[in-house]
Design a protein around this nucleic acid. Structure first.
Length: 875
RNA sequence: GGGCAGCUAGCUCAGUUGGUUAGAGCGCCACAUUGACAUUGUGGAGGUCACAAGUUCGACUCUUGUGCUGCCCACCA
């Protein structure tokens, strides 16, 4: 017997890098080369294309486990479609992530050199950022490779590289020319810390308990959590329908005593005021509050800045001018209290403050001249639809399918609330606004919004763009739906008049085993590289895919990864065993499955039928984006059916080389998208002699039902075959159970007598298997058997099984066991009896159901009789 | 304030149109080690399917309500 050279334990580190490098160097991740290699080998081609862009990780450092999830899922799709014969491309890249990257480099600069970016100056600072980014990208590339991602590196992109910059400039110009981009002074979210504006979506709202002050303002009492903004408050607003203030007229003026003396206040009536909140009266600060800004716009009111862009009070604050907000607040309250204008304070008030999600700066709304994209202006050449309407129709018309579907609703709701998009930033790192004399940079999402087509060469009309756009699937986390997915739809619908992708698949967040977010401060972070080093890439991928559902968060523990490491090793050993068996059978490549004279056993027919079903189910599951189910089906088949049963049977029924070869080939292909490394190693070991061919280029398995000769041989009586093998398995389990319950040592040789009744023929034909797997020395199968006096017994599907154990039975144990079985059976019969007691059941339920239940009942009754008889034997 | 998701074995989760004695993995208990694999095998214990009402011959599954848990959205000064 030729000894396999494969070691007993699979060690991923021995193969992974080498396998990946081989595929990459051969160009197999490129659609052109892969297609050519497949064509040369005469493999199938669908004529379709399959394309994906990789969501570009931020160039801020390293990948986390969330990136690993997306890479695993995307690689499954890509490898599957490549094997199907689609012209498949997956474009990798990184995102310059303007704000995130700049603030990271600023922090490093401060930590290492105690310098601010202004100390370096514009040019030098950007050099530092570029160096940092270049370094990050090297790390990221390495990590993506470690995950086994079969992306086309020859097409790698960066949101800030030259071709993408060209696309950004072209898009800006196009939108500017179409009047969609305009410059305007509007209220924006200002981060005084990072000294830049940020978009609405980048705000994070944090709850905070803060004192809520009620001040006397002329005849009114107004309330605020921000006294420091109140200097310029010369408008007092109430709801037009508020009966309490009916005596006051819109536009009426009155003199009130305020922080720095008397001012003239104007009454404004506006429905934006909530009558049930506070006193129903408020003063407004249009320069520093979005709602107030809108009221002021409606009524044409004056707007005046109170706080500057560094967060200090302006001269309007009089004696408080120059103070920081936090410092001024308390002093202003004290002054108002001294002037007897403080009515009362609510110390338990909870409100929400806006912080910049990138960098945590406290947001100060300001009016500032900025660049905006108008989402409500009809677009020429797009049927007069607005950008909002274009975004909506992309999804509502079915052009873009979202998995899971419930996110459609969330998406629409977001569009409904969408305001003009502020695209200019005051940070240094990023695409410069392509307008002479303007120093602002563009929101990073402006460039990533172009990602599906800027990566394919737009604005040039490239072949890639024609062939691969719209892309097939966009796989990403649901947390990025608005930031990115929506903006890609906007850009693509506008610029190309087509959707950017056909399907959006949204995965959930990876949390720790207690459901907490992973964070460095909690110390619960699982680093993909660490666990890959420990358990192998294949195991990590499986643990991130199986047991997860789209749109839902998942919990990951190291134990789970270890579990899939075990499975990887199981598959490895299945492969070793089958390879050894094939070679022992004198087999090699493509052993014939239909030599004359070979007859196939029940087990053969069963495993081939099941394999065929598995092909169908797995393919179906992947096509419907149910990767978890696909993986589970494969795992259960591989471990629970193939390894636990068929391979054990194969040790008894010899000469299975041809079937085993076929099974292993199919199994490796099916598993390959999920675990690219271990499958590739096994494939190379047995199935290819060509150094330049790989499993990843093989054809995806198809169901064999259509092949006539296979059908006749294996599948013709599939249902019966599957039922029969189940019966045999039940008998074996029952024997094992009897042995275990009665503490019969596994090594002990026993005699087993089976009263087969209507299963007699089946049992006789499978006697060798029952003997071997049940560890039976002497098997006596007959139509009926009288129970031997000193024996243990049980029943299975109407058959009776006896194990004579002269002098060895512990009657107490055996009695208890039988009584337990009888009790369970009685309960079952009672439950069934209930059904029939309700006369409506037999009348209303479908006939086949009633028939089924009747059969169950009679089988159960038969069963209990036999058990009872067995019990009586030993009483 | 509006919306969405989850609640099934100690833990992590399956359960596709209502009819299975409700399943898997991990963990736990017992037993087994020269024959592919101890990263293994065999057997076992373990569940009022969050709660309540309703529809139905029949509900883990459908409807309504309640309770927790989490997330998203919203201009409450």
């Amino acid at each position: 017997m030729p000894e396999s050279e494969l070691p007993k334990v699979y060690n991923p580190a021995d193969y992974e890098d080498e396998i990946y490098a081989r595929a990459e160097q051969a160009g197999f991740f490129k659609p052109e080369t892969a297609q050519a290699a497949r064509a040369k080998a005469g493999r199938k081609k669908t004529g379709r294309s399959f394309s994906m862009v990789m969501p570009p990780p931020n160039a801020t450092g390293t990948l986390h486990i969330g990136h690993a999830v997306m890479l695993a899922i995307q690689d499954i799709l890509v490898r599957y479609h490549r094997m199907l014969g689609d012209e498949t491309v997956w474009i990798p890249g990184t995102d310059h992530a303007a704000i995130a990257t700049q603030s990271k480099v600023e922090r490093l600069l401060w930590e290492t050199e105690k310098k601010m970016r202004h100390d370096l100056g514009h040019e030098e600072f950007l050099k530092r950022v570029d160096a940092f980014v270049a370094d990050s990208r090297l790390t990221i590339r390495k990590q993506i490779r470690k995950m086994g991602a079969s992306c086309d590196w020859s097409r790698e992109c960066f949101t800030l590289d030259e071709p993408r910059s060209l696309a950004v400039r072209a898009m800006f110009k196009k939108m500017y020319d179409d009047g969609l981009i305009y410059r305007g002074s509007k209220i924006v979210n200002w981060d005084p810390f990072l000294q830049t504006t940020v978009s609405d979506d980048e705000l994070e709202w944090q709850e905070e308990k803060a004192p809520f002050y009620f001040f006397k303002y002329g005849p009114f009492v107004i309330s605020t959590a921000r006294p420091e903004t109140k200097f310029g408050d010369k408008y007092v607003v109430m709801h037009p329908a508020d009966a309490r203030y009916a005596e006051y007229q819109d536009g009426q003026k009155l003199e009130v005593e305020w922080i720095n003396g008397k001012i003239i206040a104007t009454i404004i009536k506006d429905p934006a005021v909530d009558m049930n909140f506070g006193t129903g009266v408020m003063t407004i600060t249009p320069w520093h509050d979005a709602t107030d800004f809108e009221i002021a716009e409606r009524h044409g009111l004056d707007k005046e800045p109170i706080i500057d862009f560094d967060g200090r009070l302006l001269p309007v604050a009089g004696e408080f001018a120059g103070m920081k907000i936090a410092e001024a607040r308390q002093k202003i309250v004290e002054k108002l209290a001294a002037k007897k204008l403080l009515d009362h304070v609510d110390e338990n008030y909870v409100h929400r403050k806006a912080v910049n999600s990138r960098g945590n700066g406290l947001i100060e709304p300001q009016i500032k001249e900025q660049w905006f994209i108008n989402v409500n202006k009809p677009v020429a050449g797009r049927g007069g639809k607005t950008l909002k309407e274009l975004m909506r129709s992309a999804v509502s018309d079915g052009g873009v399918n979202i998995v899971p579907e419930r996110f459609k609703k969330i998406y629409f709701h977001w569009i409904d609330n969408l305001r003009d998009w502020n695209i200019s930033r005051q940070i240094w790192y990023g695409h410069k606004v392509p307008i002479e004399g303007d120093d602002d940079t563009l929101d990073t999402w402006f460039s990533s919004g172009l990602w599906t087509f800027s990566t394919l060469g737009w604005p040039e009309e490239t072949n890639d763009l024609k062939k691969f756009h719209p892309t097939s699937v966009l796989e990403t986390g649901y947390d990025i739906l608005f930031f990115w997915v929506a903006r890609m739809i906007l850009m693509s619908m506008y610029a190309l008049g087509e959707v950017p992708f056909r399907t959006v698949y949204l995965h959930g967040l990876v949390r720790d085993e207690q459901g907490r977010k992973m964070s460095k401060s909690l110390g619960n972070v699982i680093d993909p590289l660490d666990v890959i080093a420990k358990y192998g890439t294949d195991a990590v991928r499986l643990s991130l895919v199986i047991g997860t559902t789209p749109g839902n968060d998942t919990r990951l523990s190291e134990e789970k990864i270890a579990g899939y490491r075990n499975f990887t090793n199981k598959l490895w050993n299945i492969g070793r065993f089958i390879i050894a068996t094939i070679n022992n059978n004198g087999g090699g490549l493509g052993m014939p499955l239909r030599p004359l004279g070979i007859s196939f056993t029940l087990a053969d027919k069963w495993i081939m039928s099941r394999l065929d079903e598995v092909i169908q189910e797995v393919t179906g599951a992947i096509n419907s984006f149910d990767f978890s189910r696909a993986g589970e089906i494969l795992r259960d088949f591989t471990w629970g059916e193939l390894a636990d049963w068929y391979l054990e049977i194969a040790k008894i029924e010899k000469n299975k080389g041809a079937i085993l070869e076929r099974i292993l080939q199919t199994l490796l292909k099916l598993w390959h998208p999920f675990m690219p490394f271990v499958t590739e190693v096994l494939w190379r070991e047995q199935f290819t002699e060509d150094e330049n061919d790989m499993l990843m280029l093989q054809e995806w398995p198809e169901t064999s039902v259509k092949k006539r000769w296979l059908f006749k041989r294996f599948f013709a009586k599939k249902d019966t075959v599957i039922q029969d093998i189940q019966t045999v398995q039940d008998v074996i389990s029952a024997i094992r159970n009897l042995r275990a319950e009665n503490k019969i040592e596994p090594a002990k040789k026993i005699t087993v007598m089976i009263a087969g009744h209507n299963k007699l023929e089946l049992l006789v034909s499978q006697a060798e298997i029952i003997k071997a797997l049940g560890r039976v020395e002497n098997l006596e199968i007959a139509l009926t058997h009288k129970q031997p006096p000193q024996s243990v017994a049980t029943t299975v599907k109407g058959m009776e099984i006896f194990i004579p154990l002269v002098g060895l039975i512990d009657l107490t144990i055996e009695r208890e066991r039988l009584q337990k079985e009888i009790a369970a059976m009685e309960k079952y019969i009672a439950a069934l009896g209930q059904k029939f007691a309700q006369t409506d059941f037999t009348r209303r339920a479908p006939k086949e159901i009633v028939e089924m239940e009747k059969n169950k009942l009679s089988a159960a009754k038969d069963n209990i009789e036999k058990l009872q008889a067995q019990l009586n034997q030993i009483k």
